[in-house]
Computed example of a mutant assay.
Amino acid sequence: MDDIVKQALAKWPNVPSCTGWLMLDRRGNWRMRDEAAQASGAPGVPIRHEALLGFINRNYEADERGQWFFQNGPQRVYVELAYTPWVVRLSAHADGTLALHDQGGGAFEPAAVFADEDGGILFADRSQPARIAVLHDHDLEIFSDHATLADDGSLSGAFHWSVQRTLPLQSVRRDQVAARFGFVASPAAQV
């Protein structure tokens, strides 16, 4: 968390939280949702300002109930999650190594990989509790180039992360991801 944010929290400790105004979409874009977007269920307008994106990413965390928020100075802005609290991009380097990075650009080291019933790929890391991230859909081809899928039509198989590490591909139901990984996708009703 930025020092300026910590100072604002100390100076104004009782600023009410807000909900519904910020969303992390399925592709890792932060979106600002005005009242009209909230009322219609629209995702809102993508935030493109690099300094603001950096500020959001540095001050993004979860509370004790698994509700993700952006600490905007003294105000906690709870985030609507289109799927998971993290979205990762997968890249393959010329030497054959793979890398995962989250929506803020941070490295993401996978410990487990899952496939949901819609073909979405999710990665969990080794942190406690585990961070769960959905793979950006533009990177599914890279994933499939490094995966071995079962011939029986099930969502099982293996993901070859490196020469030394192969992760079994586990199935997960999309509607169970939040409960399994301890986060709240829509904190508006719970704040």
Rank of each mutant, 00 (worst) to 15 (best):
A112M: 13
D118E: 13
D118L: 06
R174Q: 07
T148N: 09
Q170M: 09
P129N: 07
H138R: 15
A133D: 06
T166Y: 02
P129K: 07
H138M: 10
L140M: 12
F159G: 02
D175N: 06
D139M: 07
A150T: 07
L140D: 11
D118A: 12
R173A: 11
E141H: 12
L135M: 01
Q170R: 14
E141D: 12
V172C: 01
Q164C: 06
D137R: 13
D151E: 15
V163K: 14
I142T: 15
F143P: 03
D118T: 10
R173C: 07
S171V: 08
A133W: 08
V163G: 07
P168C: 08
D175A: 13
V134S: 05
G157Q: 01
G120Q: 09
D152T: 05
A130F: 05
T148S: 15
E141P: 04
D152V: 01
D139A: 10
V134H: 02
V113I: 13
L167D: 11
G120M: 03
A150C: 10
S156C: 02
F114I: 04
H138G: 11
I121H: 00
F143E: 01
D151A: 12
I142G: 03
H160E: 12
G157Y: 07
V172D: 00
H146D: 01
F114V: 00
T148E: 15
L122D: 04
S144M: 14
H138C: 06
D175W: 01
A130R: 08
I121S: 03
W161D: 10
G119S: 01
R174I: 09
